[in-house]
């Protein structure tokens, strides 16, 4: 009986973590679909979003949820800046050069965060929230807001991808690059929109992660591996698969704490990813990699 309660409790944490991972994994998947490279700076883009949101709160004294749009603007601008300053110039060479570049960019972004905000640990709200009790199961209010925000963001993205011309163009480019280009899709504009959306999703993940725990300069880097695992599990290049991937990885990571040290959570994500790579490398939904 106790085990059941633990399991339900951990599943709640898992869904919360899963929704954060989902936001990151959709971004990674989209960037892969359009630009054909694994974006290693995505975790640190999340960190930037979380910290920009924090600064906005500190300067304006706005309510906590304002961190989300503020962080999104910050991370989208950062992604655009990085793309225009660096990635744009090496896009024509092999995609793998972009991968190296983004790995370097990850360290640069993290160092910028350390320079601007210092190595200290921050949180959006002081103090510990009193959970709501449902029988023996505790639900922290923040977890509800995190889940709600993630659902709203994903729904908005879904509407964008299915209802707007630009969204359809993005999906077309992700499905078949050559075919999309001969039909006259403006590739450069699609790439810019991809970075804006990728940055916004990363900031969403970063701010929600900050709400769930705390802000540290390495918060994004530490979650990058589970994000990639979620993207691969869902089929990289498939934004909708990323939702399933994120949830499975999030649940597995939290439930593993029944048997393993919590610090091994990223390793659990890694083991699942390796298993997927061996058994079904294209992911649950056939990916484009």
């Amino acid at each position: 009986m106790d085990l059941l309660i633990d399991l339900i409790q951990l599943s709640i944490y898992g869904i919360v973590l899963g929704s954060i991972l989902t936001l990151g994994a959709i971004g990674v998947s989209m960037i892969f679909g359009i630009l054909r490279f694994a974006h290693f700076a995505h975790g640190d883009l999340m960190t930037i979003g979380a910290y920009v949101g924090l600064s906005f709160l500190v300067f304006t004294g706005a309510p906590v949820w304002w961190a989300l749009p503020a962080g999104m603007v910050g991370a989208a601008l950062t992604a655009l800046l990085v793309d225009q300053a660096v990635y744009k110039h090496i896009r024509r060479t092999q995609p793998v050069i972009l991968l190296i570049s983004s790995f370097g960019m990850a360290l640069v972004l993290r160092s910028v965060v350390q320079l601007v905000w210092g190595p200290n640990v921050y949180s959006y709200t002081g103090g510990i929230q009193r959970p709501w009790w449902f029988g023996d199961i505790a639900i922290v209010p923040n977890h509800v807001w995190i889940l709600l925000a993630a659902v709203l963001i994903v729904a908005a993205l879904h509407l964008f991808l299915t209802r707007t011309r630009m969204g359809k163009a993005m999906r077309a480019m992700s499905d078949n690059m050559d075919l999309a280009l001969v039909t006259g899709i403006p590739a450069e504009r699609v790439i810019l929109i991809t970075w804006i959306l990728g940055g916004m999703l990363a900031a969403g993940a970063g701010v929600l992660l900050g709400m769930d725990s705390r802000l540290t300069p390495t918060m994004g880097w530490n979650i990058l591996l589970p994000v990639f695992a979620a993207a691969i599990l869902g089929g990289i290049g498939r934004p909708y698969g990323a939702i399933a991937g994120g949830m499975i990885i999030g649940l597995a990571m939290e439930i593993s704490t029944l048997y393993l040290e919590p610090s091994y959570k990223p390793a659990v994500a890694f083991v699942i990813m390796v298993a997927v790579l061996i058994v079904r490398p294209q992911g649950i939904f056939k990916g484009t990699l």
Partner: peptide
């Protein structure tokens, strides 16, 4: 697999 997988 593609080299991106190796990287990850």
């Amino acid at each position: 697999l593609r080299t991106d997988y190796l990287a990850i």
